[in-house]
Amino acid sequence: MNVYTAGSILIFLLGLYGLLAKRDLFKMVISLSVLDTGVNLFLVAVGYGSGGIAPILTDTYPLSVLHFVDPLPQALVLTSIVINLGVTAFALVLVARIFKKHGTLDTAKLWQKMGGEEE
């Protein structure tokens, strides 16, 4: 386990902490974003080989037998980032909707309100 994979797991854990500990919905969405960033970094770190070059054939690095970093996890991360963008965008609009409807983003108050509506 190298410093990159360890660091990305740390970021993931930070996001998880935020998700669990924060009471404000908006901060929870941001924590989710941090968590996702950690996972994406982990995927990229998995593909890394020490001394590797960016996986693009160019004038400077024209041969495919050179020591390239693994491009596949990067492709996966590309997709993952886009998906997370989609989720975050929708989540933020949802947060706005909840604020407009209930006037608060405090999860404690919201759960209380939900309890009232429910039974």
């Binding site: 993931f12 982990f42 996890p73």
Partner: peptide
């Protein structure tokens, strides 16, 4: 959404490993 987000992040970690 929040729960689903955590779940899919864990899934991706699994794929990474």
């Amino acid at each position: 959404l929040l729960l689903g987000g955590v779940g899919s992040a864990l899934y991706l970690l699994g794929i990474g490993v």
